Amino acid sequence: MSTEPNRHGMKFSICSTGLKGMILKEVLEAANRSQLDGVELWDGHIESYLDDGGTTYELGRYLWEHRLRVPAISTYASFSKSEVAWELDLQQVKRAAHWAKELGCPRIRTFAGHLPSREATPSVWDSVVSGLSAASAACAEHGVRLAIEMHNDTLADTEDTIAKLLDRGGPELELIYDGFNFFVDHQDPLPVLDRFYRRISHVHFKNYRWNHQDWAQSVPVPVLQGDSDHRAILRKLAELEYDGFLSFEYFGDRVLELTQLSLIEVTRELSIGGDDRP
């Protein structure tokens, strides 16, 4: 397998959220075998590693020795479920921001609520916006940024609601782009990428043969073989000269296989584009 750098400068990682059944060392070893540039770390993996006696210094040294970077630490904070959960979400982000500083990670992933925007009441909006503001300030204290994942069934599930979140949340907030999350809601992901590109600091990539009537029957496939046109998204990212991380985000029994196949497809596609061949 060839994963030689392409002229577009994109870097590739795996989301460890899809590998919760593995310990962190196994995840990192798998990423290294797959010749990835980094690992987007689920905060639960870090917590377990530290509970088992590891330190952030040791983890950082392992990452450095194996030339693996951490483009994001992923939490499941949402700031919308209850007052108690709101406080726990904020503490979760604060803890992750501390780890991010220790590991040289630039951002923390959060969700903007846990309900579709069409169902959100003004009080839910207020709760989420206040949570994002508090979490963003906590991240800034550690020199990192807070990034909202664009995701269906959250307040960041349409162009207009994303714009509203950014307007109310302030200029410090970043976005994590996942085109597939718009596809499942029958939305074109490319206009979203165009409109918010300046705020997008990180990208998720996955694809499925998708069953819109019964999502559970959908089948994950390598990113350029599914029903969402990820080839068009990849080409748009290259056109925009995106040079950040692209994290493959799969769940289930084939995470590592699908990540490796997707990496081959994406690097090949970028190489073809770099040679200006059709």
Rank of each mutant, 00 (worst) to 15 (best):
P122R: 07
R168N: 05
V129L: 08
A163S: 13
F111R: 08
N152A: 14
M150L: 15
E149F: 01
R118M: 09
K164Q: 13
H151P: 01
I148D: 02
T158Y: 12
G169C: 03
R168K: 13
A138V: 12
T158D: 13
E141W: 06
R118L: 08
R109Q: 11
I162Y: 05
E159N: 10
T158H: 13
T158M: 13
D160M: 07
G131S: 10
S130P: 04
R168D: 10
K164P: 02
V129I: 15
S127V: 04
W125F: 11
L166Y: 09
T110H: 06
S123D: 13
S117G: 03
C139K: 11
I108Q: 11
S127T: 07
T121Y: 04
G143K: 12
E159F: 08
S117W: 01
D167M: 07
V129E: 05
H114F: 09
D157I: 00
S117V: 00
L146C: 10
G170C: 01
L165I: 14
L132N: 08
D126T: 12
F111Q: 07
L115D: 00
A120I: 02
L146V: 03
R107L: 15
E159I: 15
T161V: 06
V124S: 03
G131H: 10
E159W: 11
D126R: 14
I108R: 12
T121R: 14
T158S: 15
G169P: 04
S127N: 07
A138F: 11
H114K: 13
E172W: 05
E141S: 14
L165F: 09
D153R: 00
A147D: 12
E141L: 13
G169D: 05
M150D: 05
T158C: 11
A140M: 09
G170W: 02
A112Y: 10
C139V: 10
A135M: 11
I108T: 10
D167I: 02
I162Q: 01
P122N: 06
T154F: 00
G169W: 08
V129D: 07
P106N: 06
I162S: 01
S133L: 14
S133W: 03
K164I: 03
S130K: 15
R109V: 05
L155F: 07
T161F: 08
A138C: 11
H142P: 07
T158V: 11
A135N: 13
D167G: 06
S117H: 08
A134F: 08
E172Y: 05
P106C: 06
G170D: 00
V124T: 13
P171E: 10
M150W: 06
L165T: 06
P106Y: 07
A112T: 10
P171D: 09
A156E: 09
